[in-house]
Nucleic acid binder design. Structure first.
Lengths: 150, 150
DNA sequence: CTTGAAAAATGTCCCGT
DNA sequence: ACGGGACATTTTTCAAG
């Protein structure tokens, strides 16, 4: 992992469609070593995968909500169960277990308010152990980087 | 935009390395129409781009923090300035303008506590108009989907 | 949409250095 | 580790049914 590898990561995390030739030029190497470096970065899992970024809004999922969740108590059982439920709900884009005033931070994307209400009432609030919930609606996405390399 | 287009989006957002042939098989079409559908989805910006997912932890960025920010008042000036500053700070992975008890939710990734302290003291708290800040450290990432199609 | 074909571009691997 | 070159696969375009 040297400066060239980092440059390659940085290029690919911006645009995965760059081909080996283009990357080779940008990092100042020829095809072969560039190809091998990319393969090595994939094998060693510096690159976890390649994905297409899909515009959620164009597909109707225009409401994004951050949802803070607190549990009654921090028993292993409740936490494990909560994690399991979160995994099965497709409305939940991300979920982090955090320290501080609440326990979990959810990012939820739905098509409309009806769907959000249904999500909260029928799917979220029925999970065992939840003591408190607080929703913050996203008015604007100011930044959302894929980037971990700089 | 029909069921097949949605299937293609769903496949590509999981794995952008699938080639046209593989996608064609999975959606039950032949090469030509599949190829054209993909191109159309790209042109119409249903697909915003293709990126490599890089493992931040392997590069040393092991601390993730969610940071709630409140402004003194909601003047256009302060908000615009805040947005500008956010854009220039690479530690900030994402930033959303939200409704509710606070104004902005930041996701920040750094290498260690020193770097976080430095980020807060030298870079964040110097931005005009901030009245309150609250950090929640991520203990575990339970879910973090790329997926908007299901 | 399907089939088939063909050229251009890329990806992939082997062998020198 | 790098570079060159050979070969396989894919991408991309096109025509006809």
């Amino acid at each position: 992992m040297d400066a060239i590898d980092r440059k390659i990561l940085s290029l690919l995390q911006e645009n995965a469609k760059l081909n080996t030739k283009e990357i080779a030029e940008k990092v100042g190497l020829t095809l072969s070593p560039t190809f091998e470096r990319i393969k090595k970065l994939e094998q060693q899992q510096y690159i976890k995968g390649y994905v297409a970024l899909v515009d959620g809004g164009m597909l109707g999922r225009s409401i994004t909500v951050f949802c803070q969740i607190s549990l009654f108590k921090h028993s292993k059982e409740l936490i494990e169960n909560f994690k399991k439920e979160v995994g099965s709900l497709p409305e939940i884009i991300s979920c982090h277990h955090v320290s501080g005033n609440y326990d979990f931070l959810l990012k939820v994307a739905v098509s409309n308010m009806n769907e959000y209400q249904n999500f909260v009432v029928e799917k979220l609030s029925v999970i065992q152990g939840i003591s408190n919930m607080q929703s913050s609606f996203v008015m604007e996405e100011i930044k959302n980087e894929n980037g971990w390399v700089w």
